[in-house]
Design a protein around this nucleic acid. Structure first.
Lengths: 346, 346
DNA sequence: TTGAAAGCGCTAACAA
DNA sequence: TTGTTAGCGCTTTCAA
């Protein structure tokens, strides 16, 4: 490998060594256009010998493609988000794409920066937005520059979005509890802040309501607590629910995320309540720690969701990849019953 | 804003509107070279009017700078790593840099890909390696292409590395326990797998040993358990330590990370042992949940570490930014005493 | 199937 | 302080 030249080996050097033109090298290496087997062989060999790696900048400038996908997300530290990111990044890398990360954790200014300066032009071929509701202006600019974009976990009008059926997921968890003969089933849902960018909390609430209604149970306000999708939040919310007088206390709690469910389990313990003896608890996600906590949950598969999002983009980015479009098939989810749920003590 | 042109507004259009040359536009917008106040004004105004954003590809090709920094890390889902990433990304973004993420979570093949294909040339101006020991070959290529690189949390020979003094941190936590009159202090350290890429576990073990030795205590093998830095691992390890016959059971445990300490706290509870009544537990990190669990810990500040790593790179990347070099000042850490530690019951 | 050559949009050296 | 201009390294059209 030639080193230290600052700019690296150029395509011209490969062409010279292989005894072909730069155009042929480009074709051989990119797979676009026809190249004889013999020529391809010699090019590959020469490239290997010289340690040639294409210059992204030059390639992008000439072709208009960056081989770079932007991923925008509101949190990095939470399980769901880092899992989606992981799944997407891995798939993209194998397809030869870089991932540029835009984390909106900070202030509003950052969001504007991301959309106006970074994503806007020429830096990425496509965008994956995770659990983010885009404003009309943001959508407008994405559409204007004609970059494909998909949403994961968030509802983006007019944009292919990968999301589980949140209503159905919540129903499933709640129906599991009803099936165990629970009659007073509380919910720890999202608070208003977490609903802002992302209407999932509201849907999970509706799923819970529907399941209760179908069973002839009353989804009374006293059974609803709100939290911010963190362990701490779930803990506090569960204390509220479980601190109610005995006759009002739920015998089961559906938490809209596993992290909140963990908090609820800890709250129950701290109150001296046995899980599942005194209270059953179910979550959503199948977090890495769900098994450890013995938490019954409805699994979703964020790594796969990230990878699927990439597949959809790749189909638009590289016409060669044209499998049967799986874009709008609903995403899988699955009830996993563990130790945290059981029939109520009678 | 002009839209839909595919390639976006070019510098030539801005130059025309502002009545100057493209060179002046470039200078005005990048801040390099002298431009009269009047010209700068007109350029800025024109650029705003046209919605001009520089083409990264063209700029990189011409200048050799990508305004892109690669961050390589072995995990995304763990608190320490996502926090470093968050800190670095935010700082970089404000400096106008993109972050390209390379997660080595997958198989070995990926590691080779990252170093040979992606990082090697022309895609990034600098590299931040988080808790990763680079091989000689990897270091060699980084050096050969002359890209600045820093390590965070991992020891990289010959490379500026931001890391806390792991020996001292472990000593501090252990001395805190000794100061409370504990005499049998166990440790949950890293297992061999986690030491592979990252000698932190070994250092924390040594800190514990030194603190015990200084106090005339015997760091006997029975007090040592190993885990993989996860909650689950910490739980299992703690069960081993705490399951010992009463006379051998430690009255305190130092866990080399907060996540393992959480596991240890849960293990103690499951054994019916009171924390801190029967056993005190201390960790390292000040994880987001440490406050919630009431865990005594030695805080480190990964977000700041990420940001500091960026500062060091920026100093090399942009000669204008020349503050007094803070490169090798030791990183701060801080004992935070919470509910999980107390004097042993007598 | 191959090669020649015209850019892609910008930066930086040089000249003025 | 400003403008002219020669590339940066690649892709892609066109012609052969």
């Amino acid at each position: 490998m030639t080193i230290g030249t600052g700019r690296g080996v150029s395509i011209a050097e490969v062409a010279r060594l292989a005894g072909v033109s730069t155009a042929t090298v480009s074709r051989a290496l990119s797979g676009r256009g026809h190249v004889s087997e013999a020529a391809r062989e010699r090019v590959l060999q020469a490239a290997r010998e010289l340690g040639y790696v294409v210059s992204q900048a030059a390639s992008s400038l000439a072709s208009g493609r960056t081989r770079n996908v932007g991923i925008v997300l509101p949190f990095l530290g939470r399980w769901y988000f880092s899992s989606v990111l992981e799944g997407a990044q891995q798939r993209l890398m194998h397809a030869g794409y870089d991932v540029t990360l835009y984390n909106l954790a900070g202030h509003d200014g950052e969001r504007a920066m991301v959309f106006e300066q970074f994503l806007l032009r020429q830096r990425v071929d496509a965008v994956i937005a995770v659990a983010l509701e885009l404003t009309d202006a943001e959508l407008g600019s994405l559409r204007a520059i004609g970059k494909p974009h998909v949403g994961v976990g968030g509802p983006i009008p007019g944009v292919p979005t990968l999301m589980i059926d949140d209503v159905a997921v919540a129903r499933l968890a709640t129906e599991h509890l009803i099936g165990l003969d629970h009659r007073r089933i509380g919910i720890i849902g999202g608070d208003r802040a977490s609903d802002l960018d992302f209407h999932m909390p509201d849907k999970r609430l509706r799923g819970w309501q529907q399941a209760l209604a179908d069973a002839g149970l009353d989804p009374e306000p006293g059974l609803i607590a709100q939290a911010d999708f963190t362990v701490q939040g779930g803990y506090a919310a569960a204390k509220q629910l479980l601190g109610a007088p005995r006759r009002d206390r739920p015998t089961a709690i559906f938490a809209a995320s596993d992290e909140m469910a963990f908090g609820a389990m800890l709250a129950a313990r701290d109150l001296g309540l046995d899980v599942p003896g005194d209270v059953s608890i179910a979550g959503v996600d199948d977090h890495d720690l769900a098994e450890f906590f013995g938490l019954t949950t409805v699994a979703q598969f964020p790594r796969t969701q990230g990878a699927r999002a990439v597949d959809i983009l790749l189909m638009q980015l590289e016409p060669s990849v044209d499998e049967a479009a799986p874009a709008d098939t609903p995403l899988p989810y699955e009830l996993r019953v563990r130790r945290s749920t059981a029939r109520p003590r009678t």
